[in-house]
Structures are given as structure tokens and as C-alpha cells.
Design a protein around this nucleic acid. Structure first.
Lengths: 124, 124, 124, 124
DNA sequence: GTGGTCTAGACCACC
DNA sequence: GTGGTCTAGACCACA
């Protein structure tokens, strides 16, 4: 369900965070249901447990998941508004760059339509 | 005309590249007109000449400017299509993230309108 | 395995690039196998890490190697066709000069035979 | 008869030297006939007199031309063997690079045939 | 440990 | 004056 591209310039922990968010948004990870343990996730993806841990901590700090010591890690709620804020901030930056380099609004519209209607993969 | 935020996470050379592209797009730097020399730009912005050089090299590699050793650096053409490709690639990635985290299309539309109509600053 | 001539007019980073390409071509560096780290290569050759980094970046831009931040630098593929294009371009320029200065074809043939049959060192 | 590409990475004085050699080799500049004065050459080509002077000095040092103070600059002889040595040295270097990157001998042969039979321009 | 960025300061070739 | 190369040494993010 989760795929990591070790060659990508996007840090592994960010790839993980994004894909977990996607799975939560899709309803595959439900509120108060447990995520795979750090170890099993690391093993499954063939990455360093530290890296998984970093991703989990990032998500916890954003209020998306919570830890119960000795029990595991759980989805906090499917309210992703905090995440949205960050994403929108990043989006604004890129859009400003696009505008500054002279890309026209209709070009942007096309791209949006492509992505929202297209089969759309991930962004690594 | 150019401002650098040394505290930003965005590397200085990238900030410089973006702002130069903006100025070219606005027609302030015209085809075959010279850019400020590495040294004078560095002095003016209070940054290291090597950093300016790195930004210039990046733009040269993208075909935006060209170097005449011993004379200076010049705008190659105001055709920014290569730059556009890269920006659009980055834009697609962010839009995919936005969609995956559940942001709705109308929200995106609003942001676009804000940016294209608002006076909007830079993205550092 | 790699030797640098600091007194040569050829920049160190170019010497390094060429020799790494040679080693890849000889199959000594294989696809997906790691190159020496920037620091260890620099130490071994007695040059500055920045210079090694510059050589690696050049090769990465030519698609010969790829970087995994925090892990190292790896051979991308042993397909050197991009490199060949550049070399052939340079070769054409020198051959045109040779022809223009009145060097005869048989003279060139001799040289080629020498180089392809002789053990031939490097070009620094 | 002589064209300069100010945008080229090849230094202007080298471009000049090469083209003068070509003209001598073609017999357009004959032994003991005068070359254009530094000033007129500079003016005609729209370049700096210092640059023309540098090219002339280079050719003089290679024994291709000689100066008669107060009279002008003349073609020494159409024996270009010194020039040939340098060109051949450069050629060998590029050929070694070609071989080291895995380019095959027949590929080189093709290129040579192209250049010696083709209409062939200059190498800037 | 890895590479990426930045600075300060040096020397060179070209114009 | 211009840009190009190199060094030494610093700090950061990633795994």
C-alpha cells in the first residue's frame, strides 16, 4: 500500500508522512485504529526504523496520530486541517513562482483538471 | 530590486535565481543586456560572490543567460519555456499532495485567484 | 586507481570526472554500486571535498551517477551515451582544427591506431 | 573572411589564431605578404585591439608570422609544423578521452570521413 | 556517517 | 575590470 522511492530527492520520512496522510484521507486508516508498529513498517518498506520513527513523530506533532506508550500508534482523527494549512502554504509558494515566471492562469487550470480527474499517482 | 532572506530555508542561490527570472519575465532584464557582475551583485546583496556565481551558473545551465568570460553575464533570451517546464513539474507534485490530503478543487481555485489578482510578493 | 595532476591546466574536477567515467566504462564501478564518499575520495586524493563534490555533481547532471542524501553516491547506469555525445562534439572541433591547419588524413589514422592499440594513459 | 563568435567559450584570440592559420594553409595569406594591422583587424572584427595583438603575438611565438617594426606583420612561411604539433597534442588528448569512455574505433572513422569530405565549417 | 549550502579569501585567464 | 577554479572550514538535514 505504501511505496518508497529511495532514489528520490524527497526525504524518505516525508514520502512516508504523505502516504500515510493519503491513506487516512481515503479512509483506509480510520480514527482510533492502529498504524503498523515502527519496526514492522520499517521492515516491510526496507528502510531504517529511525526514519519511520521520524515520520510518525512528525505526524504526531501535526496532531494526526497519537501514541499510547506500550500499546502503539493510532489515528487521532480524520480532521486534516493542520496538514492542509501546510500544503496550502507550499502550494502558494509554487504558484507565486509560476506567476512570476510568466505562466498563464489557463495553463494552471488545465493542470488542475488533469490532476483532479486523472488517475493521479504520488508525488515523489 | 532583489531581496534575499538569509534566514529562509530556501537556499540563497535559489532565491536569487527565482528573482532574476521574475525580473527577466517582467522585461526589466532584456535580451543581451548584462546582469550585474558577480562581485557587484554579491556586494549589493551582502552575500558571497560564490553564491551569486552558483545562481548564475544554474540559470546558464537552464539556457536563460550566457557568460562571456572577461566581459560579463548576459540575458540569453526572454523565452522562459524551459523554466516553465520545471516549475510546472514542481506545481504538479504539490497539487497531487493537495488532492491526496483531501483539499477540494474550489479551495485551490480561490488560492489561484488570490495570487493572480493580488499584488503577491515572492515565495522565499 | 585515480591520479590527479594538480599542476595540469585541466581543472581537477574535470580530471576526476574523466577518470571516473573511465572506471565505469571498464566496469570497475558497476551500476548501483557506490562511489567513494566525497570526504574519503577527497582525503585519498589529497584535494578539497568541494572539488570532489563538484565533479560528482557534474557526473550527476550528465546522468551517470545519482545521489541519495545521507547514504552516498551511486552509479546510475553504465550507459555512457550522453557522455559520448559531448566527447564526440569536442573531437569534431579538434578534428576541424586539424584539417584547417593542413594535417593530412593518414596522419590522423596513425594517431588513432597508436591510441587504440597502445596501452595509452590518461589525458590530463 | 574571418568571423568571431563573442559568445563562444573559446577565447577570441584563439579563434583569431585558428582562422589566420586556416587562411595561411589555404594559401590566401602567402609567405611574406602582410597581414592587416592590429588596428584595422580589430576595427573590422569589432573586437579589442589588445585581443588582436595577443593573437598576433601567439602566432609570432609559434614562428608563423614575423613583425617588422614600423612596417607591419608578415607571414613567415607556410610551414605549419609547429602548429601541427600542438594540434596533434590536443587531438591525442581528446582521442584518449574518447577511447576511455568506450567510443569505438569505427565511430571515430566515420567522424573523420565526415569532416574531411564534408563542407566543414569552423570549430568555435 | 552521508551530501548540501555558505563563507572568506586566494590565484588564474581573458578582455 | 570580468568570470572560473580551488581551498579551508563552518553549519545543516538526512539516514
Amino acid at each position: 500500500m505504501i511505496t518508497i522511492d529511495t532514489r528520490s530527492r524527497v526525504p524518505i520520512y516525508e514520502q512516508l508522512e504523505k502516504q500515510i496522510i493519503k491513506l487516512i484521507n481515503l479512509g483506509i486508516y480510520e480514527t482510533d485504529s492502529p498504524l503498523p508498529s515502527v519496526r514492522s513498517m520499517a521492515c516491510e518498506l526496507g528502510i531504517n526504523p529511525n526514519t519511520v520513527s521520524k515520520a510518525y513523530k512528525g505526524l504526531e506533532q501535526q496532531g494526526v496520530i497519537y501514541t499510547v506508550t506500550g500499546k502503539g500508534i493510532f489515528v487521532n482523527s480524520t480532521d486534516l486541517s493542520k496538514i492542509h494549512k501546510q500544503t496550502i502554504k507550499a502550494l502558494k509558494n509554487v504558484l507565486i513562482d509560476a506567476r512570476n515566471s510568466g505562466i498563464q492562469k489557463p495553463t494552471i487550470q488545465k493542470i488542475i483538471n488533469e490532476i483532479w480527474e486523472g488517475a493521479g499517482n504520488d508525488s515523489n
